[in-house]
């Protein structure tokens, strides 16, 4: 090859180089935040795992709705993935750890429900494209009938062809069992919203007697309470003798079940310290279930999050829609 040949090859390479540079995806909207899942060799095993250092933290702003209107908060979000799993880590400030969810309290005479809800975080992905979710986020799946308040709002898509994957971490009802509730979203029905539980079993069981006056179960002998002093269904035994309770004793009202099947896809690790929550949610990239989004690391995904601070469904902090992408 002559000098000319080498020169030609260099010119060719430069051509292709500029083609890539120019053709690269620089033309994107400025507004949308992107969470990039970093590729890691071995899955993170806990909150302090060094794998998390590979992921870039994204400070996702949340805006309060209804009871929290006008207030703002933020969740520091990280994501990593391995050959077959995806791992999210969320850190947010919350001085009060709320896991009460109406737990029973004995005052020496009678049982009553304590005031207090629970902390939650939820994520919504698309299984089948939800029209305008990519630009409008959760707003397109919240339907408040005209003239009604947010309390009557329904959560769901506008057609059965649109499917969402809703990850629902509940500090009192799912976390003590080590899971986030795996649910999905479909078309809104007249009566109810479009929220459905994934196939399988899970959720929680109400701990009360038939007349709803007192708890029915207590921890079985030798069984400990789970995180947040929550009694799991698996550890519960029927109360035979109520005389053993003293004034001030508390018993879990909503007892988490051990989920099975597709509903058990999302596992959770959490900790509440230093005035805030740290939560890891992880799942297989592709669970093989049709009520879950299958993540393809070559693709980008839209998702949005909501945070509930000791509050019900209508009072939340919502994020804008975000992009999830996977690093190489």
């Amino acid at each position: 090859m002559s000098r000319k040949a080498i020169l030609s090859i260099i010119i060719c390479l430069m051509l292709f180089g500029s083609g890539i540079f120019i053709g690269a995806d620089k033309v994107s909207a400025a507004a949308k935040q992107t969470v990039t899942a970093a590729k890691v060799k071995s899955a993170p095993t806990g909150l302090a795992d060094p794998a998390w250092q590979k992921a870039k933290a994204v400070e996702v702003p949340f805006e309060g709705k209804e009871k929290f209107a006008g207030q703002k908060t933020a969740v520091t979000t990280k994501a990593v993935y391995t050959g077959d799993g995806i791992y999210f880590k969320f850190d947010w400030k919350d001085p009060t750890k709320s896991v009460t969810k109406g737990a029973w309290k004995f005052d020496g005479q009678k049982w009553s429900h304590q005031k207090g809800n629970e902390d939650r975080i939820s994520l919504l992905f698309e299984i089948e494209r939800i029209d305008k979710f990519a630009t409008k986020g959760c707003a397109v799946v919240c339907h408040v009938p005209a003239g009604k308040t947010a309390k009557d709002g329904k959560f769901g898509t506008t057609s059965p062809a649109e499917k969402g994957d809703l990850w629902h971490w509940k500090a009192a009802r799912s976390d003590p069992a080590g899971f986030a509730d795996d649910t999905w979203l479909t078309q809104i029905s007249e009566e109810k919203g479009g929220r459905k539980s994934d196939a399988g079993k899970g959720g929680d069981q109400k701990n009360m007697t038939a007349d709803k006056s007192k708890p029915m179960y207590m921890p079985a002998p030798g069984k400990k309470l789970a995180a947040g002093n929550v009694l799991l269904v698996a550890h519960a035994v029927e109360i035979k003798d109520y005389t053993g309770f003293k004034a001030g004793d508390t018993v879990t009202y909503r007892m988490p079940k051990m989920p099975v099947g597709s509903r058990a896809d999302i596992k959770a690790i959490s900790r509440h310290t230093d005035g805030g929550w740290s939560v890891i949610l992880f799942r297989k990239l592709d669970t093989g279930h049709d009520d879950d989004v299958a993540f393809n690391p070559r693709k980008k995904y839209n998702f949005a999050m909501a945070l509930f601070d000791d509050s019900g469904d209508e009072d939340s902090y919502d994020s804008e829609v975000l992009t999830l992408q996977f690093s190489r």
Binding site: D25, K132, T135, K136, N302
Partner: peptide, 12 residues
């Protein structure tokens, strides 16, 4: 690249 689906109502 493939961006987000077109939303003719999105002014942002």
């Amino acid at each position: 690249p493939l961006g987000d689906p077109a939303d003719p109502t999105d002014s942002t």
